[in-house]
Design a protein around this nucleic acid. Structure first.
Lengths: 111, 111
DNA sequence: CATGTGCTGAACCACATGGTTCAGCACGAG
DNA sequence: CTCGTGCTGAACCATGTGGTTCAGCACATG
C-alpha cells in the first residue's frame, strides 16, 4: 500500500485552500503561472512555491513553454490519496457499525 | 460543498504518518493516550498533540475515563475529505480522457 | 491518607510553510 | 539588437509544526 512519503506530500498539498483552488482551476484546462497567480492577488513567486509543492506531490505537471510555465493536472497521486482513505474507511465502517450501536446503548445508561 | 477550514484540517491531519498510524490503530478499537504513544517511542505529551490535531480535524473523538483519555474514531470528516477528492477526480477524469489523448499524440511529434 | 501512574500545560527548540521583495535571466516582438 | 514580460532564485520574515523536558494535577490502589 503506497509509500508514506507519497501520501504525506499528497495530503499536505491538499491541505491548503490556495492549492485546492489551483487544482480546481486546472480542471478547466492548463494555465500559466501568471494565470494562476492573477486571481489570487499573490505574487508570481508565491504562486510558484505552491505549484512546486503540488508538483512534488505529483498532483500537477509543469513544462516550460517559451518563457511561460504551463501547469496541468496529473491525477495519479490523487488516486493514491483517495485509495488510502477509501481502504481504511471501508475497513472502519464495519467496526463502527457495531461500535456505534454499543456506544449509543451505553450513553443511555448513566456512566 | 464543505467549508474550506474543515478540509484544511482534515487533510493536514492526514498528512502525517504518525497520525495516519494512529487512525489505523484505532480501527482495531479505542485506545488510551498511553496505548497510542507506547509503540511510537514518543512522549505522552507528543502523542497528545497529535491526538488533539486529529480531534480538531474531527477524525477522532476523545473522552476522559477516570485518569486515562480514551480515543476512538469519528469518521465523519474523513467522508468530507474523500468527497472532495472524489468529486473533482470524477470531474477531471472526463477532461483528462480527452487531454491525455491529445498530449500523447503531441508527445510523439518532436517538440 | 499516601503514593504511583496517566495525563495536561507551559516553556522551549529546530525546522518547515507561506508569503514578501528585489535582482536577474531568457525569450519573443519590434 | 533592444526592450518588456514571465519566470526564477536568494534573502528575509512571521507563524505553525513536531517534538522535547519539567512541573503539577487527579484519580485508583494499597
Amino acid at each position: 500500500m503506497v509509500q508514506h512519503e507519497v501520501l504525506d506530500r499528497a495530503f499536505a498539498a491538499l491541505a491548503d485552500p490556495t492549492r485546492r483552488a489551483v487544482l480546481v482551476r486546472l480542471g478547466e484546462g492548463p494555465a500559466s503561472l501568471g494565470d494562476l497567480a492573477a486571481p489570487t492577488g499573490m505574487t508570481l513567486t508565491g504562486m510558484g512555491k505552491h505549484v512546486r509543492v503540488l508538483e512534488e506531490a505529483g498532483l500537477v505537471r509543469t513544462t516550460k513553454v517559451g518563457r511561460t510555465r504551463q501547469v496541468r493536472l496529473g491525477t495519479e497521486r490523487l488516486d493514491d490519496a483517495m485509495a488510502w482513505i477509501a481502504f481504511y474507511q471501508r475497513l472502519w465502517e464495519r467496526r463502527l457499525d457495531g461500535l456505534e450501536a454499543y456506544l449509543t446503548l451505553r450513553e443511555g445508561q448513566d456512566t
